[in-house]
């Protein structure tokens, strides 16, 4: 993620933007690392997804919401989030091929290797990259974007 110009008024100061530009990729990478190694080391889908969401939020705080919404539109967030859940459910449903819901039907491989543990890494990816990261980011966006004044009852009657 790279913002084109540092000089416009949106977002925070030049120092913050520069530091963010260096670090945001690293944070994202670290989040992905936690997700992919979820089955062999501490961490996993939720923790990794949270770190990924933090990288989006940092980017948004530094560069302003227009920059991030250009890259990930709101509609896309909601679609990808639903897709994440459906992907997770499909993995669980494929377990019926082994006779049980959520059955781990892929070959398990060697313990402590990256490619092991059957369906668990795939579930982690579905959960983290799509569901948790975008879900938390979506909640943050809603809190920031939604200028929401509850309608008064009188106005509703006039309508």
């Amino acid at each position: 993620m790279k913002a084109k110009n540092n000089s416009d008024n949106k977002g925070m100061s030049l120092i913050v933007k520069t530091v963010t530009r260096i670090f945001v990729g690293l944070i994202l990478l670290y989040g992905i690392y936690i997700v992919l190694h979820g089955h062999v080391s501490p961490g996993g889908g939720f923790a990794g997804g949270f770190i990924i969401a933090l990288s989006y939020i940092l980017f948004m705080l530094a560069f302003g919401k227009e920059e991030i919404l250009k890259r990930i539109p709101e509609r896309m967030i909601s679609i990808l989030e639903s897709l994440g859940v459906i992907m997770f459910l499909v993995i669980a449903l494929l377990g019926f091929s082994g006779g049980y819901f959520f059955y781990n039907w892929l070959p398990k491989g060697m313990p402590f290797k990256l490619l092991s543990a059957g369906t668990i890494p795939i579930s982690n990816v579905a959960l983290a990259l799509l569901e948790v990261s975008l879900g938390l980011f979506g909640i943050f966006l809603v809190l920031v974007l939604l200028k929401f004044a509850p309608k008064k009852d009188l106005e509703k009657d006039e309508e």
Binding site: R75, I79, S82, L83, V85, I86, L89, A92, L93
Partner: peptide, 20 residues
Amino acid sequence: IPLFIILPLGAAFLLSLSGK
């Protein structure tokens, strides 16, 4: 038995995909 959980949850997210 697991259909009691699969059906409503799966349907809920398919419906949220359909948008407004």
